[in-house]
Design a protein around this nucleic acid. Structure first.
Lengths: 116, 116
DNA sequence: GGATATGTTATCATATATGATAACCTTGTC
DNA sequence: GACAAGGTTATCATATATGATAACATATCC
């Protein structure tokens, strides 16, 4: 694959505190939905086709993907969506960085990554 | 009642090919709850203390963490929990290895992922 | 224009997560 | 035994995600 993975991008981007801040804010709401759309299209599926795989309606897929909708989906919904488009959802818990006045070269952030 | 350990659960689940399909999500759910408990304890909080930080009741925290509960929490619930114990939730989508139609009895599929 | 494909929005019904209260169970301490 | 701390379970009320149907909007193609 020529494109950098999300992990690669993330790793690099998070080194920059400015980028990190934006990343954090986007992560929750906006990023997920764009991510889902991207995965679905990568799988070559329309909303209607995906809806059929998930035994639901295209309007519900639209609502899930729509940035304007304020819903916070259930975990299982995202998991099923991911599986239907060929991906597995993984949850990572990253320690919240308490910004110290000066931080050394090797921040312990990535090391103390708390996910499996 | 006695709660099943993860190994008990895994053995039982993998023994029956019929539940193989379900294994991923169930294991993920089991893992999540264990993960949450670990993070809370690492933060040095009791269920009651965490409940207070989240403006809710300890019984609700228990329900969320309890393996026996069949709920699939909202993403926002997990996010808020994580934040309250000092972590940030990140979602990653990992491509599912597409298996060849060669499915004999001991496919290593679930095995490789189940390793912890 | 008419038709098709894709996605959106509105609305209602239903399922389920969460809030809240109370009772209960262990374990430990006195 | 009495008590407290930490966690569990049951139950009800409420909030909200999801299921379902229909109408609408835009393209695109004939």
């Amino acid at each position: 694959m020529t494109r950098p993975t999300f992990h690669d991008f993330k790793k690099k981007a998070l080194r920059d505190p400015g980028v990190r801040e934006e990343y954090e804010s986007l992560a929750a709401a906006y990023h997920l939905k764009k991510k889902l759309i991207g995965l679905r299209k990568k799988a070559g599926l329309t909303q209607e086709e995906l809806a059929e795989k998930l035994n639901t309606q295209k309007s519900n897929i639209s609502r899930l993907e729509n940035v304007n909708s304020k819903i916070s989906p259930k975990l299982s919904t995202i998991e099923e969506y991911a599986k239907a488009v060929g991906f597995k959802l993984e949850l990572d818990f990253l320690p919240i960085k308490t910004l110290k006045p000066h931080n050394d070269a090797n921040s312990a952030d990535a090391k103390s990554r708390a996910a499996d």
